Amino acid sequence: MAVKKITFFTIAFFCVVLVQAQSLVVGTFNLRYDNPRDTGNLWVNRAPIVASLIQFHDFDVLGTQEGLRNQLDDIKNALPDYTYYGIGRDDGQAKGEHSAIFYKSAKFNVLKSGDFWLSATPEKPGPGWDAHLNRICSWVQLQDKKSKRKFYFFNVHYDHQGVQARRESSLLILKKIKEIAGNDPAVFTGDLNGGHDSEWYQSLSNSGWLKDTYKQVAHPYANNGSFNSFGTALQRTEIIDHIFITAPFTAQKWGILSDHYHGKYPSDHYPVLAVIKL
């Protein structure tokens, strides 16, 4: 009887440890919008490659940028284990590019969701400061169905031209994540259109609160920059796609996935993957 009790409690102990040490595969991926002028790299050809890449690398949650509604639906239809949240940046519904978040629907429940624009009036569509285009941040609060643990996931795409807009966007991001997530664990992903030397990146990295997963791991897999321009910028080393976390998350792995097929690339950005532990 005593042996049975010891065995039971031993199994129970290890089950608790496994739950406590839960790891998640998260990422960020600028999909490149469905541009009919991308001769040789059209979305109709890239779509199945993108879906296969997401499936193979087994992301639990993935922040995407630039996806139009038809692209997001193509991915969802190809990957029935995933669903997504996000609205169009142009009208707050389906029009324009999205900062959509894909997640495994069998693994997570969505408890809350929302969006805000990167501008002085974040509650409504419109460009901010000197931005060239509307820019939006989408977010969800997810709960793991087994462990019942909750965390927030924010995803964004900064403007590619407005320098002031990128500076102000980081200040707004810090403010909004604190307002929405409070002290709960949070992940923040996005194409910031700026590397580690940019002022807007450093505002986040030096916040004392958001931590760059790249800097948390001992051996980041960074053999390339994260922007490849469909193969014409392979010599670039700048990382402009980022994954940040708050405590109690810690990062175990980080890498740029330089997948390609027959000399072509799934997007003009490489996806970035991190394994994080809650």
Results as ranks from 00 to 15, higher is better:
residue 215 K to L: 14
residue 136 I to A: 06
residue 68 L to E: 03
residue 51 A to T: 08
residue 83 T to H: 03
residue 175 K to G: 09
residue 188 F to N: 01
residue 182 G to C: 10
residue 204 L to H: 00
residue 273 L to A: 12
residue 240 I to P: 01
residue 145 K to T: 05
residue 164 Q to C: 07
residue 159 D to P: 03
residue 80 P to K: 01
residue 247 A to T: 14
residue 159 D to K: 01
residue 226 S to M: 08
residue 253 K to C: 10
residue 222 A to C: 15
residue 258 S to M: 12
residue 19 V to I: 14
residue 38 D to T: 15
residue 249 F to G: 04
residue 71 Q to S: 04
residue 219 H to N: 14
residue 14 F to T: 09
residue 11 I to W: 08
residue 101 I to T: 01
residue 267 S to I: 09
residue 49 I to Q: 13
residue 166 R to V: 01
residue 174 L to S: 10
residue 179 E to K: 10
residue 125 P to V: 08
residue 135 R to I: 03
residue 52 S to L: 07
residue 15 C to M: 14
residue 275 V to M: 11
residue 224 N to Y: 15
residue 141 Q to V: 11
residue 215 K to E: 12
residue 222 A to Y: 14
residue 92 G to P: 03
residue 93 Q to K: 13
residue 153 F to N: 00
residue 245 I to M: 01
residue 130 D to Y: 09
residue 24 L to G: 04
residue 64 T to V: 01
residue 238 E to T: 12
residue 81 D to C: 10
residue 150 K to N: 13
residue 36 P to D: 12
residue 243 I to T: 02
residue 139 W to R: 11
residue 84 Y to R: 00
residue 18 L to M: 13
residue 138 S to I: 04
residue 170 S to P: 04
residue 181 A to H: 00
residue 72 L to F: 03
residue 150 K to C: 11
residue 73 D to A: 15
residue 77 N to W: 12
residue 268 D to Q: 07
residue 115 D to L: 12
residue 13 F to L: 14
residue 248 P to E: 07
residue 179 E to I: 09
residue 205 S to I: 05
residue 48 P to K: 05
residue 253 K to T: 14
residue 171 L to C: 11
residue 252 Q to W: 10
residue 93 Q to L: 11
residue 26 V to M: 03
residue 204 L to R: 04
residue 123 E to K: 12
residue 213 T to Q: 01
residue 225 G to W: 07
residue 211 K to P: 06
residue 135 R to G: 07
residue 138 S to L: 03
residue 76 K to F: 01
residue 269 H to R: 06
residue 197 D to L: 13
residue 210 L to Y: 01
residue 49 I to H: 14
residue 158 Y to N: 00
residue 213 T to A: 05
residue 53 L to C: 03
residue 42 L to D: 10
residue 123 E to I: 12
residue 69 R to V: 15
residue 29 F to L: 05
residue 244 F to P: 03
residue 216 Q to M: 11
residue 77 N to E: 13
residue 244 F to T: 02
residue 218 A to C: 02
residue 256 I to W: 06
residue 198 S to C: 09
residue 245 I to T: 07
residue 6 I to A: 11
residue 195 G to L: 10
residue 121 T to P: 09
residue 131 A to M: 06
residue 194 G to M: 02
residue 76 K to T: 05
residue 24 L to K: 04
residue 259 D to K: 12
residue 77 N to L: 13
residue 74 D to L: 05
residue 32 R to H: 07
residue 29 F to M: 05
residue 94 A to E: 14
residue 243 I to Q: 00
residue 112 K to C: 06
residue 14 F to C: 07
residue 276 I to M: 06
residue 71 Q to F: 01
residue 27 G to D: 06
residue 233 A to Y: 14
residue 53 L to T: 04
residue 42 L to V: 11
residue 91 D to Q: 04
residue 136 I to M: 08
residue 39 T to F: 13
residue 40 G to Q: 08
residue 105 S to T: 15
residue 219 H to V: 15
residue 208 G to C: 10
residue 133 L to C: 14
residue 246 T to F: 02
residue 98 H to K: 08
residue 83 T to E: 02
residue 2 A to L: 15
residue 12 A to K: 10
residue 95 K to W: 04
residue 166 R to F: 03
residue 208 G to I: 06
residue 115 D to N: 15
residue 89 R to M: 04
residue 238 E to W: 08
residue 241 D to Y: 03
residue 60 D to G: 03
residue 8 F to K: 14
residue 18 L to H: 13
